[in-house]
Amino acid sequence: MSDQTPPRIFSPDRRKAIRQRAVALQARPDAAHFVLDDMVEDVIERLAFLRHEPESALIIGDWTGKLAGELAGRGCAVTQADPGALNNIPALDEEQPYPAGAFDLIVSLGTLDTVNDLPGALIHIREALADSGLAIASFPGAGSLPALRTIMMEADGDRPAARMHPMVDVRAGAQLLQRVNWASPVVDTHSIAVRYRSLHGLVDDIHAQGLGCALTSRAPMISREALERAEKAFAKLADNDGKVCETFEVLTLSGWKPKGGQFL
């Protein structure tokens, strides 16, 4: 790792506030949670395919508790953590060394796209694994929200603001895993397509799932005129049914800690 301090792109306070708002919004009966549900289901399928049956696991970011419940039902000792300290789940600073635990499985869901030192966070995960332990990290990838990006560019006109943060693509993910020395690394991605009848509905789903912008530099408030341009841009993208198809891309990084803890 470099001795240089990584640039402070993301605000830890905004990250925490975004996640806390999402959990509060989940009290609504119609609140969206399909991105996290998809990540949880994907992890369960991967564990079955790999025939990995952990005795101890650290689950980060699953404020639903679904994955923890599934693993606990299999006799796994589960530790939960979250950067937002949600639902009585202890807080975890992903940019600091993890508490000693030597976990057979570490799963991070929907949080690593907004850490300032992603290589460091991945190294902390690696170091917290037991020999032959598995790590799986899923988070929104670079192909996410193309429609909203187009809409906001048109809304801001000649003075575009940083309203959406940069995201990691498959190539960068592969380079990251090589850099941080995860063994037998695998990087893959898949997309979730959702159709929306209104811009308001799309933004509501983003807020309810904690997918908002956590950049340190806040963009200016959207003016009434800019909002009108955004609504017009949304209508321009709509299909014959009056709906816009938006994409949520899930990028997943996985790797192992070999027996003996020796990495190539």
Rank of each mutant, 00 (worst) to 15 (best):
F103L: 02
V244N: 03
E127Y: 05
L86N: 01
A233G: 10
D241R: 14
D205L: 04
V107T: 10
R149C: 03
H190W: 15
D13S: 15
G101N: 06
P29Y: 10
M1H: 05
K236S: 12
P166S: 14
V40K: 00
Q178Y: 05
L134Q: 02
I9P: 06
R14V: 13
L58N: 01
V23D: 01
L50R: 15
I59M: 04
E41K: 08
A235T: 10
D62S: 00
G133Q: 02
V187K: 04
L25S: 10
S254K: 11
T216S: 15
W256G: 10
E249D: 08
Q20E: 12
W63R: 05
E41N: 07
K232Q: 14
L227Q: 07
A91F: 00
T114Q: 07
A81G: 09
E231R: 09
H124K: 12
A77L: 13
E45R: 14
E95G: 05
R171L: 15
N87K: 13
P166K: 13
Q178C: 11
P12T: 04
R51G: 12
A162P: 05
G73P: 11
H124L: 05
E231G: 08
L202P: 10
D131C: 09
L148R: 03
I123Y: 04
I151H: 01
A238Q: 13
E231P: 09
E228S: 09
E127I: 03
D205K: 04
F10V: 04
Y196C: 06
H200W: 08
S138M: 00
Q178T: 14
L118E: 11
T111I: 07
A91P: 00
F248M: 12
P146L: 08
A226G: 06
C213I: 09
L202F: 03
A32D: 01
Q262N: 11
R229E: 08
F263M: 06
F10K: 04
P29S: 08
D117K: 02
R19E: 03
V107E: 00
L253P: 03
L227F: 08
H33Y: 08
I18A: 14
Q80C: 09
N116W: 10
A130Y: 13
P6M: 03
L47V: 02
H165F: 14
E231S: 12
L211A: 09
Y98E: 03
A57N: 11
R149L: 05
H33G: 12
V43F: 00
D3I: 04
P83V: 01
L112T: 10
N88G: 10
L227E: 04
D62R: 00
S144R: 01
E228K: 14
F10W: 15
D158P: 06
